[in-house]
């Protein structure tokens, strides 16, 4: 018994291969590589021009602290408006994707009707093909609808872009809603819309995953704002930052401040919701 135990422990150590120190060591090093560059930018955005170049790796102190970069950004670019535009586009596009996507996913998962398979495949194609390939015609379409340089152009394109994956993910979730529950509601006289309303809260994790998957590419996109809404009044944060940085390349304080301003809100949101987001990705990956 004793020998067996000893043998077990002995081989146990050999089996593990990785020591605790190695695991923590590699993870810590990689974490520094991941957040170091971001921290470097944020840190230096609060320093004087001289300090940025003389001692890039030290924290700002009372002598080197400066907000001049932020003043330049405030004077020269309309960041509140860019944020408002990005916020409007993202909230509306995500909202429409979730609502339209959930309704369509429910129909495909719940009812067997003529054309179900065809429609499922029709939507699945959109998961694989990037919408950017249709840009030439999207621009023509937006010109003819007089939507160029409006936020609606972006909202409509992003809604179309998000729907296929949303339907795909939500249909999986709706299939897991117990049939008895829905049939019980039907026996009680609930109409089909009411049954849908009952099933909806049961797929909340799916709705959250879809919202996350849809939100980031919309907020971060440069391509469509650049092509469909490059006007000053419709610029999103991503495009606004890109244009600003292009103009102020040599003003390092301003560039660092603009980068920090653009990065911090999304990082804060991420830190607050990271648990939900990462579990959404994990669930989405397995499905």
């Amino acid at each position: 018994m004793t020998t067996k135990n000893v043998a077990h422990h002995g081989s146990g150590r050999a089996r593990r291969g990785l020591s605790k120190a190695t695991i923590y060591g590699i993870l810590t090093l990689y974490t520094l590589l991941a957040i170091g560059p971001i921290a470097l930018i944020v840190m230096n955005s609060f320093k004087t021009r001289r300090a940025i170049f003389d001692s890039p790796f030290s924290l700002p102190n009372s002598e080197t602290f400066s907000l001049k970069g932020y003043e330049t950004v405030w004077d020269r670019a309309d960041f509140p408006r860019y944020f408002f535009n990005s916020f409007t586009v993202t909230v509306l596009a995500v909202g429409l994707v979730v609502v339209f996507g959930a309704a369509a996913a429910y129909a495909l998962a719940e009812y067997r009707f003529t054309g179900n398979t065809f429609l499922t495949l029709f939507l699945a194609v959109g998961v694989m093909i990037p919408i950017r390939l249709g840009t030439v015609s999207i621009l023509k379409l937006m010109v003819s609808l007089h939507l160029v340089n409006t936020l609606w152009a972006l909202i409509l394109v992003y809604t179309a872009m998000g729907i296929p994956l949303a339907v795909f993910i939500l249909a999986q979730f709706f299939r897991q809603v117990p049939r008895d529950l829905k049939d019980a509601a039907r026996i009680d006289g609930a109409g089909e819309y009411r049954v849908f309303a009952l099933a909806l809260p049961l797929v909340r994790p799916g709705l959250a995953a879809v919202a996350v998957f849809t939100m980031l590419p919309v907020w971060n996109d440069l391509w469509f704002p650049l092509i469909l809404a490059p006007g000053e009044s419709t610029k999103t944060v991503t495009l606004g930052v890109q244009v600003f940085l292009g103009q102020f390349v040599s003003d390092w304080q301003a560039v660092l401040a603009a980068l920090t301003l653009a990065a911090i809100p999304i990082l804060l949101l991420y830190v607050i919701f990271s648990k939900q987001m990462l579990s959404g990705i994990t669930e989405g990956a397995v499905k």
């Binding site: 339209f100 939507l123 919408i131 249709g134 379409l141 409509l156």
Partner: peptide, 14 residues
């Protein structure tokens, strides 16, 4: 709603 937006702004342009 989903099919309309998807068809008009993604499938048709592609």
């Amino acid at each position: 709603p989903a099919l309309l937006v998807y068809t008009a702004f993604m499938v048709y342009p592609l």
